[in-house]
Amino acid sequence: MGDYLVLAFSCVLINNILLAQYLGNCPFLGTSKKMETAVGMAFAVVFVLVMAGLITWVINTLVLVKFNLAYLRTIAFILVIASLVQFVEMFLKKSIPALYAGLGIFLPLITTNCAVMGVCLINVNEEYTFLQALVSSFAYAVGFGLALILFAGVRERILLARVPRPLQDTSIALVTAGILSLTFFAFRGWV
């Protein structure tokens, strides 16, 4: 149990997927302008990431490794993720149209969110067991959501500040992300 807690803690804070591993930065910058879309994106990622993490783990262990097909990993993983995203998209379109409209282009882009694919690959590379993969996928996703929502909050405040013209928009956002990343940096060395 303690091991899982340590794993979860390190995935959420120390190796934060966005700010320490640099994965999933496109939606990080793209959907963080408004709190609403950030929250939506965070939940979409949690859902997709946990499912993708588990399914790719199963496929990797039971199919790819067993039949010596490890070189097909990239193709297999991306297919699983793409179909999952399609499913989430259809689900949201039917049941929560407002959120669907808010997320706009970024929902299909979860397919190309490297955080999802990245976590699947990390799970395999670190040779996690099924339970460890479950914990790490969930914790990474929570870390993603946490960083995204925190960042959206900061960005909403930046709108009120007077920013020098060349620094506006993406530029100031990146510098802010750097400072946010610095705060997560402080957790290093805890575990």
Binding site: Y22, P166, L167, Q168, T170, S171, L174, V175, G178
Partner: peptide
């Protein structure tokens, strides 16, 4: 070289490009 530096460096380069 560390993670936060990457963000800041890219942000500042973007700023220079804008200038």
């Amino acid at each position: 070289i560390e993670a936060p530096g990457a963000f800041v460096a890219l942000g500042l380069m973007l700023c220079i490009m804008n200038l």
